[in-house]
């Protein structure tokens, strides 16, 4: 489906996210992170952090929280052909439990290309900027979402 120009231009509202100890702990345990700075507030303080430290890909979890502020559900992608092609993070300040971030999503790139076996491939890059209470940028995440070309119909 062609991308809707109105969605490409739309401004998505800012959202708040509270960075919680329990969520950091859960995320760190799933990945098996060994350093207790991710799970034990005492260990985090001993290492010089105010609270437990988020693992590097942690902000991934917030993207699905609210379809109102996330462009992804509005792209019109067929979920069966949707791929997460690329993911980038920029880290400007340590992310620790107790921080309250303001996040905002924007579509920063889009392209449609002919697929190798017919149909059209679509690329969209969604950038999420997370700032702290002072308005200083903490992390920037960019995800490239691809809709692969529809597979050719073999039979009717």
């Amino acid at each position: 489906m062609p991308l809707d120009p109105a969605v490409l231009k739309r401004e998505f509202p800012e959202f708040e996210l509270r960075v919680e100890r329990g969520k950091i702990r859960e995320y760190a345990l799933v990945l098996g992170l060994q350093d207790p700075v991710h799970t034990d507030p005492e260990a985090a303080r001993a290492a010089g952090y105010p609270d437990v430290v988020a693992p590097p890909t942690f902000v991934r979890q917030f993207w699905h929280e609210n379809p109102d502020n996330d462009p992804m559900p509005h792209l019109g992608y067929d979920p069966k052909r949707r791929l997460h092609g690329e993911q980038e993070f920029e880290y400007l300040k340590p992310l620790v439990a107790g921080m309250v971030l303001r996040g905002r999503n924007a579509i920063v790139f889009h392209e449609e290309k002919a697929g190798k076996r017919g149909g059209k491939m679509t690329f969209v890059v969604i950038e999420t900027r997370f700032a702290d209470e002072k308005g200083e940028l903490v992390q920037v995440a960019r995800r490239t979402l691809i809709e692969t070309a529809a597979p050719p119909k073999v039979e009717g």
């Binding site: 990945l31 350093d35 590097p56 993911q87 980038e88 920029e90």
Partner: peptide, 20 residues
Amino acid sequence: GRALSEWLGPTALRRLRLRF
């Protein structure tokens, strides 16, 4: 990300780009 974080430090990363 864990491999890098456990090698270089829990807050050492400045940028990470993953191509799947």
